[in-house]
């Protein structure tokens, strides 16, 4: 393909966009709406995963030893925990430390401990982090079986619930996105079909003087791809504006919820939406070209 031909393709595509401006706007709007849904569900999924990650990485399993466990046995349990291949981090909190901490917290009333005959009522304990938060329930069950372990505590259900939530957000997003994407493809197909119809005479002449099939197809295909791309631009600007507001709100009202605002994340969203828009446009065009452009 020659360079000037490329210029011709783009020129024709834009001319046609301008000529059917109302329909072009309608298609761009549909693409924008479907991509807005795609974009917001992607953002929700990524953010909830991010939140789960940050939250889950804070989640620990507390392995509490019997109060009177000899130091040797405590050490054995500690080694066992550290060597477990699903465990990422083990922190040992000796009973002495727990007592000091508690004394500090109680301040003046530290005397109460004297009433206990200076015995330390606290057990030794380990704080264990799992490599994958989803393994926490299994690990907790396993640790319960270790010798001299009195109790195992972890944020039962929290991690699971969060992970489930992000799963359902993803599924729901996919379904809605699929429906809206289908609608967008259909509308673009209609637009291109009208363009093909409006230019059937031109196409007829092109065929009779020996234009190749792809020479005839490209302007239409480009037109569809541009419709998709413009739709994605609209979607991205609306989405980012809404996201900025939402982030501000979340960060002030719900400071414990982690949201992603880094440029790399936003750029990624833009890329996904632009690619989706162009793909929707190309798909719509091809459907119409197959049906109505008999080349």
């Amino acid at each position: 393909m020659k360079f000037r031909t490329l210029g011709y393709f783009f020129g024709e595509a834009f001319r046609s966009l301008g000529k059917n401006s109302w329909l072009s706007i309608a298609s761009i709007a549909t693409v924008a709406i479907s991509l807005l849904i795609l974009g917001s569900s992607v953002m929700m999924v990524l953010n909830s995963q991010y939140w789960v990650q940050t939250l889950a990485s804070d989640l620990e399993i507390a392995v509490i030893m019997d109060v009177d466990t000899p130091a040797g046995q405590v050490k054995m349990v500690g080694d066992k925990l550290r060597n477990h291949n699903l465990v990422s981090e083990v922190t040992f909190v000796p009973k002495a430390e727990a007592l000091t901490e508690m004394r500090q917290k109680m301040g003046d009333r530290g005397d109460y401990f004297r009433a206990l005959g200076d015995q330390n009522p606290f057990p030794d304990l380990f704080r264990v982090k799992a490599k994958d938060p989803r393994d926490m329930a299994v690990l907790a069950g396993e640790f319960q079986g270790y010798q001299r372990v009195e109790r195992v505590l972890y944020g039962q259900g929290v991690a699971e619930n969060l992970l489930n939530l992000s799963y359902w957000v993803r599924i729901g997003g996919l379904v809605v996105m699929g429906l809206m994407g289908g609608a967008a493809v259909f509308l673009i197909a209609t637009t291109i079909r009208l363009t093909v119809y409006a230019r059937r005479q031109e196409v007829g002449i092109m065929k009779s003087v020996g234009a190749t099939n792809w020479f005839i197809r490209w302007p239409f295909l480009l037109e569809g791809m541009f419709l998709g791309f413009f739709g994605s631009l609209v979607a991205v600007s609306l989405l980012f504006a809404a996201y900025a507001v939402a982030c501000h709100y979340i960060q002030t009202a719900l400071p414990f919820v982690a949201v992603r605002t880094d440029p790399a994340f936003l750029w990624q969203i833009f890329e996904v939406l632009a690619a989706a828009g162009v793909a929707i446009g190309a798909a719509g065009s091809m459907i119409s070209l197959r049906k109505y452009l008999h080349v």
Binding site: I205, S208, V209, G210, T212, N213
Partner: peptide
């Protein structure tokens, strides 16, 4: 895909002109 190249060797004149 050879058809366009056949048609480049043939000029067609229509009764209804078919000008744009």
């Amino acid at each position: 895909r050879e058809v366009p190249f056949l048609r480049r060797q043939i000029g067609v004149v229509f009764q209804d002109f078919r000008l744009l």
